[in-house]
Design a protein around this nucleic acid. Structure first.
Lengths: 121, 121
DNA sequence: GCCGTACTACGAGAGCTATCGTACAAGCCG
DNA sequence: CGGCTTGTACGATAGCTCTCGTAGTACGGC
């Protein structure tokens, strides 16, 4: 047992990510049930893997931003890695698609559709 | 404006449900992010529309069960109607599919897949 | 070596959530 | 009617979550 928690690269500053086996659907849904985090994930889905935390235009303080990114990472939704002083963020699309095929796309489309609808289309 | 909150049938004991326009993706995800509620929805998805609250075998007290069903109803995930002393529950599959095509099925499949995986398949 | 940038840690407060037990209401059945 | 079944309301509690500000760490550039 003792799930392989994707051991951090030895020497450097590394961040704990859940192994794919540890990712729980409930956790993913919970992470995405916050509008702010859902927005972050949507931005990440269209952009590249190379978005720093500060590239997002969230209407909360820096500490709160850190908090939300951590929730997303700990739920297994995003991957984070340091690159100098910046922390680059990327969707764990590969892992999520392997665990829950089609789910991420459905969620992203649902979010897009809702935004369109609420915009008074 | 003033969204039509699907006015309850006049005289009888009726329950407030959100109108389709009021259903929010975040709310749905939040409702489903609880293992208990996700389980209820999964049972509802395979069974008929005719399941009473007491037909579910949840490991919590009656009051807590009431609470969870209310969360699901207020998020727009289920429909509830009184039938004698019982309260019958049904998925709002039609409304959900119209708002978020494919999402419900993706979620149900993801849940099934995870259960299979965790059962040590 | 020093400063600025980017992010984290910690502590705190407000608010929501899950849970319970007890007490109660509504409807069926004998 | 009286009792049983089913679910609700209310109050309470513990725990989580979102939010912030302040203080601190890690890294890159001058």
């Amino acid at each position: 047992m003792t799930a392989p928690v994707s051991v951090p690269a030895a020497g450097s500053r590394a961040l704990a990510h859940p192994a794919p086996e540890e990712i729980r659907l409930e956790g993913v849904l919970h992470a995405l049930s916050d509008p702010l985090r859902l927005g972050i994930v949507r931005e990440l889905a269209v952009g590249s893997d190379e978005l720093a935390c500060s590239d997002f235009d969230v209407p909360v303080s820096k500490s709160t931003t850190t908090h939300h990114f951590r929730v997303l990472r700990e739920a297994g939704v995003i991957r984070q890695v340091y690159r100098g002083t910046a922390k680059m963020n990327g969707l764990r699309r590969d892992d999520l698609d392997a665990l829950f095929p089609g789910l991420l796309d459905s969620l992203l489309e649902a979010a897009a559709r809702q935004e369109e609808r609420l915009a008074g289309a």
